[in-house]
């Protein structure tokens, strides 16, 4: 497993973190480090333990065991000092629906010893038009930008974003991705959770794939994909009468997977595999539909690790 980027100071350090709720092992021995200026992602399906992990880092939940250090602060020992220096965006539905954007920002500024001017945050998050509008009247994307603005009120060194784009339309999602990149340019360290593979690929310098409270794999996107697949993926709609054994025997195929009515062939030599596939389908009087080729993705990695698809 790779460590934080070489040379970078470690600002988040998680070691053998555990949190059980009765029999449910929400977090079951999680360890990772995040270097200063990194965007680190926890990728996994709902219930994988991502949010529980992040909330323990934010001082909102107490771990059963394990050690947590953020910015050199022992989270368990001094959550108050920690909270001055981190920013948090929860998957919160709504904060103070009756107040305006400016009023909520001013309210949150009052909680911190040091804070940025509201106008600067409004500018940065492109909320100018809505500054005097009630938060209940914001669109989903604006609401999420306000949540990020609130996370930035104290100009934190570390920002936690929990599922920042869940429920957003594609345009709003892209706008938020831009925002995260700008935060990284400012030198902030960002820990985000997501169950969108594409989001993890676009944003994260490194990521940990989580499932059932454990980290299954960790590294950069290229490392993760390269570790699992030297091959490319040939995909097509499943054809009845073409057995997995037959497919596995096709030229240069190293693996066969099924994903929601789609067959995935991992191939060392795409032209050879497709040629063999066409011959095989012709022999049973069929034709592969929706045939295509792609590089392996995080989705494939997750499928390979757990035997099921990440997207729900």
């Amino acid at each position: 497993m790779s460590n934080a980027r070489a040379g970078a100071e470690t600002v988040i350090s998680v070691e053998d973190l555990r949190k059980w709720y009765g029999e449910v092992r929400a977090v079951d021995g999680v360890s990772f480090d995040v270097g200063r200026g990194e965007v680190f992602g926890l990728l996994g399906p709902n219930g994988a333990g991502k949010t529980t992990t992040v909330e323990m880092l934010e001082g909102l939940r107490e771990p059963d065991s394990g050690s947590l250090q953020v910015l050199g602060i022992d989270v368990a020992r001094d959550p108050g000092a920690l909270k001055e220096r981190i920013g948090v965006a929860l998957q919160t539905a709504q904060l103070y629906p009756m107040l305006t954007v400016t009023e909520v920002l001013e309210l949150f500024r009052s909680f911190y010893r040091r804070s940025l001017p509201s106008e600067q945050l409004i500018e940065f998050l492109d909320l100018g038009e809505r500054r005097n509008g009630r938060t209940s009247e914001l669109s989903g994307g604006q609401r999420q930008r306000l949540a990020v603005a609130l996370a930035l009120v104290n100009d934190p060194e570390v920002v936690f974003l929990d599922e920042p784009t869940t429920g957003l339309d594609p345009a709003a999602r892209r706008a938020l991705w831009e925002l995260v990149k700008r935060l990284q340019e400012q030198g902030k360290t960002i820990l985000l959770t997501t169950h969108y593979m594409e989001e993890a690929e676009v944003l994260c310098d490194r990521l940990a794939i989580m499932d059932h409270g454990r980290v299954l794999e960790m590294g950069t996107v290229n490392e993760l994909v390269g570790r699992h697949f030297q091959e490319r993926t040939v995909f097509f709609s499943a054809i009845p009468g073409l057995s997995d054994e037959r497919l596995a025997g096709l030229a240069d195929v190293t693996g066969v997977k099924h994903d929601e009515g789609e067959v995935l062939l991992y191939s060392r030599d795409v032209p050879a595999t497709i040629g063999a596939l066409l011959a095989a389908t012709e022999s049973i009087g069929a034709e592969p539909e929706n045939l295509g080729v792609r590089r392996a993705t995080l989705e494939d990695v997750f499928l390979d690790l757990t035997g099921r698809a990440l997207r729900d």
Binding site: K83, I86, V88, L90, T92, L95, F111, Y112, R113
Partner: peptide, 13 residues
């Protein structure tokens, strides 16, 4: 329920 208390708890308040 709306996680406002939780959000406030994540500040030094």
């Amino acid at each position: 329920e709306n996680l406002i208390l939780k959000r406030l708890n994540a500040t030094p308040l």
